[in-house]
Design a protein around this nucleic acid. Sequence first.
DNA 1: GCTTGACCTGGAGTACACTCCAGCCCCTAG
DNA 2: CTAGGGGCTGGAGTGTACTCCAGGTCAAGC
Lengths: 141, 141
Amino acid sequence: MRIAEFARATGFPVDTLRYYEKIGLIDPPLRDSAGHRIYGAAELRWAEFLHRLRTTGMSISEMLAYARARAEGDATAPERAEMLRAHRAEVAARVAELQDCLSVLDTKIATYEAMMSAKRGPDHARSDTRDPGRARPQAAE
Amino acid sequence: MRIAEFARATGFPVDTLRYYEKIGLIDPPLRDSAGHRIYGAAELRWAEFLHRLRTTGMSISEMLAYARARAEGDATAPERAEMLRAHRAEVAARVAELQDCLSVLDTKIATYEAMMSAKRGPDHARSDTRDPGRARPQAAE
DNA sequence: GCTTGACCTGGAGTACACTCCAGCCCCTAG
DNA sequence: CTAGGGGCTGGAGTGTACTCCAGGTCAAGC
């Protein structure tokens, strides 16, 4: 598979793939007679995993450390396992943090909705609080 | 409260607070006689909310759009509610994506652990692990 | 033979979000 | 009265991760 198809398959743009190769995140693939990169299944699996790591917020330097360990062979398996465990913990923490924020967002949205339905509600309380500035008492911010 | 304490309270570095003020994300606070910024409870609430937005990955330009709408008063409440709903959806999607990645990580980690325990010998579990408490070969939590 | 399109390289440029000065002012404690 | 600490401004610099050329090669189709 050539680079355009590989880009489609992995979700990385072509330029990013070449960039990753340049910095050592992806091994230089085979080339065809024209000098074009030819990717195989193993490259695809690795790039897909890289994409996961990136999605979960792993930095390039961390991915590089992992890639370098991987290149050294089976001896670094414990090291790599440890990297993944540490990263897993970070991602789990991130998920918890996001869920926390989600509930704050829900509260806020509910406040807005209460505010809006009160405004056009059965009691027709139009107060015309036109206040350019920040002099409002507590409201949704 | 002065800027150092405000920074501690909000989690934003001092420089970031001044930067946010410069770009219009935070309103210019009152000043004391020496020209130092003095922040109050309203500012704190807003900055804390901004911190949530940032934590959930909202870009500065989006936060700015929200802040500008907020500055225009109650008339923009529906607009702001909509922004938050859209953002909430994005965050929820992100959480789902991360959880998906978590399971991939778990699989990978389990593979490493199976590999490593196979290498040590199936019924000869040696404890040369520098990771006490997590040596059992099984999928991580 | 010529055009088109995919791919090549090395290197410059971009976007985002800060982060860090230099040089200055003000207040308080010793 | 001076040293230290905190704060001020405007502007330059940083880190990360790409992203985008310019100028060239190659293979296939008309």
